[in-house]
Simulated assay, not measured.
Amino acid sequence: MILLNWRNITNKLIDAAIDYKYLLTKGYPQKSTLDFVSTRYTLSKQERLLLFRCIHSNQYVSEVGSKLMCTKINNFVLLLDFYNILISTINALRGGEVYLCDDCVARDLRGSKLREDDYSYLLNALKVVASIVKALEPLNVLAIVDKNVSHSSEHSMAFVREFESLGLRCAFELTSTPDSKLIRYSKEFANTIVATSDSVVMMYSLRIVPMTTYIMFFLNVKPAFDFTQLFNSDCSKCFDQFKHAIH
């Protein structure tokens, strides 16, 4: 048993994470593996969700790691997974827990929809994202927005106003299938790079900006747990490049 002292992270959960990653790396199916580990360690729903979102096979971590771009992206159009990034930023601004996952990407455990009490944070969240994007200096920004979310058009226009106020060239596209649209554009257009923390989108896109990790650094958020340390993930080069890029 590995003994670690982190907020709300039990030794039982650490052991479960190690077993889960080992079995995924051996090629066992994700759902049945998660069911097995959750039952064996009597994990709560939140603990199970944490493993699902933050722990991956070594093969996945290696492949995604090869796609991460942590420098300025001057010659690329940034495809922004709009609500994925926006909600992650709101969670960080509200003081919600953030976890640094084994693939060098920061994630949280909240749902994928905006709540009523999130709206007071929305403009500030857009300012944070816009500030980071400006430092990365993309050629252009295209926000891919889930049109099924209430007030998505209004949120999209707020995005345009905030980004244009910083001199950023930007546009948005409303769609009912944002994940598939991000993946398709990533493959069809050679000069695109995707900003998301969605594991499936990351797996099938060609290039990734770990935007939620940048947000964590920008807001000086200390992760509730750092799985990159537990599994010795090779993230330091990426993190150093980003910190150099924004200064």
Rank of each mutant, 00 (worst) to 15 (best):
A135H: 08
V37H: 09
Q59V: 14
C170S: 12
S32E: 14
N75R: 13
F159S: 07
L4R: 14
S180N: 15
D35L: 08
L100C: 04
N220E: 10
A135V: 09
S66F: 08
Y83I: 02
S205N: 05
D103P: 07
G27F: 11
D117Q: 09
R110N: 14
V77I: 10
N8D: 15
C70N: 07
H151L: 13
S205M: 01
A158D: 15
P178L: 03
T33E: 08
L168I: 15
F217A: 06
T33A: 06
C70R: 01
S205H: 06
S199N: 11
Y41R: 07
L34E: 00
E173F: 13
S152Y: 04
L49N: 11
I55S: 00
T10V: 07
P178S: 05
P178Y: 03
I73T: 08
T175M: 08
I2K: 08
S197A: 13
R169M: 10
T213D: 08
S62I: 13
F189A: 02
S186R: 00
N220M: 10
C170E: 05
I215K: 02
H244Q: 15
D179S: 03
Y121I: 03
T25M: 07
K45R: 14
I183R: 02
Y41L: 02
I183K: 05
F159D: 03
L136V: 07
L80M: 05
V61A: 04
I73E: 04
Y20M: 03
A135P: 01
I215C: 04
I144T: 00
S120K: 15
D146M: 09
S66K: 13
L51V: 02
Q30G: 06
R48L: 10
N220W: 09
D118V: 03
V77N: 02
I183S: 00
V145N: 03
M1G: 13
N232I: 08
L139N: 08
L43A: 02
Y22G: 12
L136W: 06
F227T: 02
T196D: 01
G65M: 08
H247D: 14
T39L: 12
M203K: 15
Y22W: 14
N5T: 12
V77H: 06
M157F: 13
S57W: 12
F172Q: 02
T177I: 13
K26T: 07
R169V: 12
A16E: 02
G65R: 07
L100V: 00
T89K: 04
F36D: 09
F227M: 01
K31D: 15
Y185I: 09
V98T: 12
N232V: 10
I132R: 00
K67Y: 09
M203N: 11
S112W: 14
F52N: 14
M1H: 10
K147G: 09
L168R: 08
D198H: 04
I2G: 06
E188A: 13
L123D: 15
S44F: 07
S152A: 10
S38E: 07
L109I: 00
K181C: 05
F189S: 01
N11M: 14
A17I: 01
I18D: 00
D35E: 15
T33D: 07
H56A: 04
D226F: 01
V221D: 05
L142G: 00
Q46A: 14
K67S: 05
K21G: 10
E63G: 06
L126T: 02
F225V: 06
I215Q: 01
C238A: 10
L3A: 13
S186E: 05
T192P: 03
L34C: 01
